[in-house]
Design a protein around this nucleic acid. Structure first.
Lengths: 340, 340
DNA sequence: CTGAAAGCGCTTACAG
DNA sequence: CTGAAAGCGCTTACAG
């Protein structure tokens, strides 16, 4: 195993100064074409790579962005929400395309994020990804902002929220799927999911749902059940619906995971979906295509989202003006709502 | 937004030299307790963080490991295999526990991995994760080794393979699930999955399967169909089984994704699982618990795997002796094999 | 177009 | 226990 080559080694071999090597390797137009090619050839032969630490230290930037995945402390620790995993994939790809490295880290909301702002040195900017309660981490985000850290957050844009947000139009998603159910002739509804201030995404979906019902004069027949976001929560909520004799014609779930639980509880109670009751979810996670019946749901375009997040952050890093962006939500119709 | 503080700023405020600041911040026992505490307090007040680039450059290490996720070029580009996603989660957590950062990057087998050895500067070691053909990337891995790069690979340990491998016992997994089916009284079998040299994991599962059949004198009634690893492959293979009138009592799939496709093709052909035919998968991806019927499968313990991978790599980085490790595979029995 | 020199912010022998 | 100094490997004004 040879010592790792430095730019001085190349300079020596190429018969030029180390400055010229650096310029040649960075494709500076200042350097003579022939010299540049010679230097690059030698660098390749030696399998030389610039030392990122040195280069970053000198340039005072890292060409790296950090992804902070924080999970709601109530969610199942062992399994990451598949939606975030999909986002992670698209973010990874978007970073690669932009020639940025991606540092990934999981955080709990309670954690001391200091461990991560520390990344202001290791990363040029931060992507914040996770559902959860604004107010819980607002102070931390505000601190990021006051430190001048560049960051973008995944979530519903919100005037009160510091920094830039990219999100999916949860209100419109809730509207669209509810409109679809109404068009299918459903008259009574239940919504399963937290509609409180602690889950703004869910709340927006809920508002889209209730506003649409209201528009069609169907509000009176709607009930709502709380469920955080796990399968068990969904199952419990549906069981309670059954026990209270409040089972409606259509159940709108705030997430696919909740809908999985709802389907399970209905199956156990020998209630047929979609014949007896229609069920819809939200997120279009991979599983939703494989349930029986396959779940109708609302899709957030994770590929687009990843690109948008990375592009926006990169523009922010370059001190360009960046703005919130709200992506449209698309409904995916499968069997669970009985449209066929 | 203030300028970022440096160790000199702290030295100035604390009335000590910059060297002492550095030592105090690194908890060097050399420095007087009182001085150390004063320095640390001031550092905290200024929200000072050591510049990782400078520190890494000086120490010539990065406290970062890189994860190279390479995907088989034949697999569906848009969706990452959920198994790898689960691994990614556990690796992320294991890194965090060890106070290492994780750089994530996706690679195609065709890619020039140079872009990543480049990480020898940015990362102290590399984790290689992905199914696929050894021979395809063997030269690249050999090059990693010859450069003295520290790396660990996820996959079946193999004497011919350069470097250290951590993997799951695919042979034993194939055995266990086949034994279970035989115990249930199944007499005729089909295996769906590539059993060639290009997919060593699948081949090991296949050998576990055939050896077990042989042990029970059931070989004659076994057929094998090729399928790379996607759902469509599994569906195609089962259709062909049906068309050729070769449908057995039990179908052993080399992966859960293949099994998903198998279930779909059987449902379309109005063949009942598990009454008419038993189906089992491999991987225990999240989806497998939600199919109808729920899929019996073989689990690789991703949490343990992530920890093992990180621990082993870290030991390799410290130039400790590291060895291949083969994790046991556990069977997960659900409804699709008709045991209930 | 090229070179000599400064300096990014640390850590760590070396000397006291 | 502490300080002055060197140096990690680059990039980039500055001067020619």
């Amino acid at each position: 195993m040879k010592e790792k080559a430095t730019s001085f080694d190349i300079a020596h071999l190429a018969g030029v100064s180390q400055s010229t090597v650096s310029r040649a390797l960075n494709n500076s137009p200042l350097v003579n074409l022939e010299t540049r090619e010679r230097v690059q050839r030698i660098a390749q032969e030696l399998n030389y790579k610039v030392d990122k630490n040195a280069s970053n230290l000198r340039k005072q930037k890292s060409s790296t962005i950090a992804l902070l995945l924080f999970e709601d402390p109530t969610s199942d620790d062992s399994m990451i929400n598949p939606f975030f995993l999909a986002m992670l994939g698209s973010i990874t790809r978007a970073c690669a395309k932009a020639n940025y490295d991606l540092l990934v880290s999981f955080q709990n909301l309670e954690d001391d994020w200091h461990a991560e702002y520390e990344d202001s040195n290791k990363a040029d900017g931060i992507i914040l990804l996770g559902y959860g309660n604004y107010t819980d981490y607002q102070t931390k985000v505000a601190q990021l902002e006051s430190q001048g850290t560049h960051f973008v957050r995944w979530g519903a844009p919100d005037k009160d929220h510091p920094g830039v947000s990219i999100g999916c139009d949860n209100y419109q998603g809730g509207q669209s799927i509810t409109e679809h159910l109404i068009a299918l002739g459903k008259k009574t509804f239940a919504f399963i999911g937290d509609n409180g201030v602690h889950a703004p995404e869910f709340m927006a979906r809920y508002r889209g749902y209730t506003d649409t019902l209201e528009k069609h004069n169907l509000t009176a027949k709607s009930v709502q059940r709380n469920a955080i976001s796990t399968e068990d929560d969904g199952s419990d909520a549906v069981r309670s619906l059954i026990e209270c004799n409040e089972l409606p014609e259509a159940i709108v779930c705030a997430s696919d995971l909740i809908a999985m639980g709802a389907l399970r509880a209905l199956r156990r109670a020998n209630i047929n979906v979609p014949q007896d009751v229609a069920v819809v979810g939200y997120d279009n996670i991979a599983v939703s295509a494989y349930t029986t019946p396959a779940l109708s749901t609302v899709q957030q375009n994770t590929n687009l989202a990843g690109e948008l997040l990375v592009d926006t952050l990169l523009r922010a890093i370059n001190n360009e003006k960046v703005e919130d962006y709200l992506m449209p939500a698309d409904i995916i119709i499968r069997q669970s709502c009985g449209s066929e």
